[in-house]
Amino acid sequence: MQVKEIFSSQLPVGETLSIKRSRFEPFKKSDNLKRISIVSGTHGDELEGQYAIYLLTSWLSENPDAISGIIDIYPAVNALGIDTITRGFPLYEVDLNRVFPGGEDGFLPGQLVHALVQDVKGSDIAIDIHSSNIFLREIPQIRINKEFSNSTLPLAKELNCDFIWIHDAVTVLEATFSHTMNSLGTKTLVVEMGVGMRVTKEYGKQLLCGMLNLMKKEGIITTEKSFEAREPFLSEVGEVFYLNSPSSGLFVPALDHCAIIKKNEKIGTIVEPLTGTVLDTLYAPNGGILFTLREFPVVYEGSLLARIFGEKDR
């Protein structure tokens, strides 16, 4: 395994910001090896990828003979943000996943993402691991832009996630890592799982199994071990229902994340601690699985509380 610095910037007082990539490759090198890049930590407050990647690098270190392709690991794109609980690039308050593809002559965050793109470019596959944010808890899922779904959907099914969400093309999302890499010919998948600022161990293990399964199918690892990938449900066979808060207050959920719910089942309440008032009671707009649930309780009118995936009631 080799560690390489892909971007660096001296900080003002005796410190260097360094973005690193570790590479795992077979002992016997040859041309035309397949390459996969695993990227995480673009948002400094999303840490689920840290654990999933740790599990992967640990597995690869223990099974060097299984490596038959190139596996590049970029655990901390926003390294400074991760170490300082800052979602965006510190100082600039910029969401790095909205400044792709960046450029050498752009502002500093743009230079950083440009360096990442240049390094990942040429990979056959890329996986970008996110953890929702600090507000919402998500089941392990893959987000796919419809524009690229022909090439990415078959790969997504191998990743052992619960849900594959194929969304329409949105212009603003062209500034993301996944759109940039897909446009450059690298089949890129976005994983969303868990919640910001925390690690969910079972999700990390679930994704590890999926990444190994995908790599085995693609010939990037060769091993007798088998990795089961669960059958995900696809967004195209149902509908996603959103539940936004009708008022500002404290959200108290009545259900657990991932619950299978019926239409009109109580999802939670918005309360006011000062007076003991229940401001609103929320009910499911549709039956299905509660695949997104608000984790951070303070809400404003409009704050997303939950998402349900289910068949539309007739």
Partner: peptide, 26 residues
């Protein structure tokens, strides 16, 4: 604070807005 204090979203990245969306979209 620079952005919307709770979720740090930029109102000038929410146009034309959405009446049923998140707070800054509204």
């Amino acid at each position: 604070e620079r952005f919307w204090p709770l979720d740090k979203t930029d109102i000038n990245m929410m146009f034309p807005g959405y009446e049923l969306g998140e707070t800054t979209q509204r």
